[in-house]
Design a protein around this nucleic acid. Structure first.
Length: 495
RNA sequence: GUGGCCAUAGUUUAACGGUAAAACUGCGGAUUGUGGAUCCGCUAUCGAGGGUUCAACUCCCUCUGGCCACCCCA
């Protein structure tokens, strides 16, 4: 019925775009791309009812819709995060997506990629320079200070879950709008705090069925690090000719990254490079040892990774990253896993930042935290679901309500309303009159039972309950419907 | 930000320098009280713009988008 009009609309759309295109045909593309502040609104303000005008705006690069079929995964991840965080005594904190840009710049650091090329920054209508949060810590610190949380019993433990924005080049497991599960612990300089955070992240992943290993390092105090960097760059410079092109660039840009070089030819040189551990003060070394002891105690598997540094400026002492344990990947002979590319990137990263609170204007407050990439976890869960064919998504169940005849149709809504109030998950389609069509739908929804209310039943005050698997039907008094359903759904649940 | 590969219906995939084929899904139907079967019908001017050509989805360029590597990060 709708086909013809649709076709017309589509054609109209096409010809419309063609006309538009023809007029400014001589204009080059750059001109068209110029921001058109007022005109930008015009299209949107047209009444949409008449049909689409022009091309459907595409999804912004690096953005992603969460579709109904994705939701079971999201739900699972969110609830796992919630359960874990609250079990460990973290309180939920939600800070705004928008903050003064300077907050992020000051905390993350001017030279970092996140600030230099990834943060979404713009002037608000009142001229305030605002940034969309590229990470959680800065906002949490701001909240800690501005709400005077240092007067609360320490440590103050906070967890957050939400979206972040980074104008990065999209890739598998990497988006411009991303979600993180974030935990912070303020006010305690205590190895147990670091260890607890790691355990929270580790257990979260384990609860989701992901086996991981933690990579640990300490980068000491800023002074330790500075001294070490001088030494390291000095070393790399002397060995310059032995290094690959990338590493040569890294000497000035980010010497610590060079240590991580995957290039075989660099390895011998880099293995002899000075290690940061040797440049830590005794206090830092001691502290780090204690963190590791706690991890041993907690039976968290970890490896030491002297090359581990974090990309954010505020870190001090303990830093860690969590990766999926490669040995747990089910390897299919010869074939590369289809979706598994995200495995190389860290699922979680974090560390201690003892100076940040004070730097941002708060009282001197040690702190530690981690961030966990939800999309990356999701990639793994998806892959696992595919491999094991255990579908989280197929939570079949629920009930379909079919009706037949005017009288029944009229009563249907009311009955559905009552059932819903009792927590029954109901599907129905009042628009369809044919019972056949309704049963077809019921089948597609995958419900366990279909209720059939026909003319006869409507008059008798009865209703049919049809078991969709066996096809067995029974006629029940409408008044007994609730109790009958309860019985049945309980039974199926126990099965 | 740099480099490589890619872009056809909702999805997965064909073909061809002369206006596109199929599968799955969806919707409608096969005389309104019975589903998961079958059959029939409908749904794409081929990501966008420009160029070459009598003619382009098919060749070239630009843009946009996707994937991957680097970079970086979660």
């Amino acid at each position: 019925m709708l086909k013809k009009p649709m076709k017309k609309i589509k054609k109209a759309v096409k010809s419309d775009t063609k006309k538009r295109a023809e007029e400014p045909a001589k204009k080059n593309i750059q001109e068209e791309k110029k921001p058109i502040p007022a005109a930008g609104l015009e299209d949107d303000e047209q009444p949409v009812i008449k049909g689409p005008k022009g091309k459907l705006p595409s999804l912004l690069r690096g953005m992603k819709d969460v579709m109904p079929k994705d939701w079971p995964y999201w739900k699972k991840i969110y609830h796992t995060a919630e359960n874990i965080a609250e079990a460990y005594g973290f309180g939920y904190l939600e800070t705004p997506v928008l903050e003064e840009a300077s907050l992020f710049i000051r905390s993350i650091g001017r030279g970092t990629d996140i600030i230099e090329k990834e943060m979404y920054v713009f002037d608000d209508r009142d001229g305030t320079r605002v940034g969309m949060r590229p990470e959680f810590t800065a906002g949490a610190v701001r909240a800690y200070i501005s709400h005077g949380m240092h007067t609360l019993p320490q440590p103050v433990k906070l967890w957050s879950f939400g979206q972040l924005f980074r104008h990065d080049r999209p890739q598998a497991g990497r988006y411009r709008q991303l979600h993180q599960f974030n935990c912070e612990s303020f006010g305690a300089h205590d190895p147990a705090v670091d260890a607890e955070l790691i355990v929270v992240a580790y257990n979260f992943l384990r609860d989701l069925g992901i086996e991981t290993t933690v990579q640990m390092n300490s980068i000491g105090t800023p002074e330790d690090r500075q001294n070490y960097l001088v030494e390291l760059t000095g070393y790399l410079r002397t060995k310059r000719s032995y290094l690959c092109e990338d590493c040569k660039k890294r000497i000035t840009r980010n010497p610590l990254r060079a240590l991580d070089c995957k290039n075989e030819s660099c390895r011998p040189t880099l293995e002899e490079a000075p290690q940061i551990v040797d440049w830590l003060s005794d206090a830092s070394k001691n502290y780090f040892m204690k963190v590791l002891e706690f991890l041993d105690e907690l039976e968290v598997p970890y490896t030491l990774k002297p090359t581990l540094v974090r990309g954010l400026d505020y870190y001090t002492e303990t830093v860690f990253e969590i990766y999926e344990d490669p040995s747990t990947h089910s390897v299919r002979s010869g074939q590369a896993p289809p979706v598994a590319e995200g495995q190389q990137s860290a699922l979680c990263g974090g560390g201690r930042y003892d100076l940040l609170v004070e730097e941002l204007g708060g009282p001197p407050t040690p702190a530690c935290g981690f961030a966990l990439g939800v999309e990356r976890v999701m990639t793994i869960l998806r892959r696992k679901a595919e491999e094991n064919k255990d579908k989280i998504e197929k939570e079949s169940g629920g009930i379909f309500f079919a009706h037949l005849g005017e009288q029944a149709r009229r009563r249907t809504l009311k009955m559905i309303e009552d059932l819903r109030r009792d927590g029954v998950v109901l599907h129905h389609c009042l628009g369809k009159t044919a019972l056949k069509a309704q049963l077809e739908l019921a089948n597609k929804f995958g419900v366990a039972y279909t209720l059939i209310l026909g003319q006869k039943e409507a008059q008798d005050g009865t209703i049919i309950i049809r078991d969709m698997e066996s096809g067995i039907q029974e006629i029940v008094d409408q008044k007994k419907l609730k109790s009958e359903l309860e019985k049945k759904t309980k039974n199926t649940k126990h099965n």
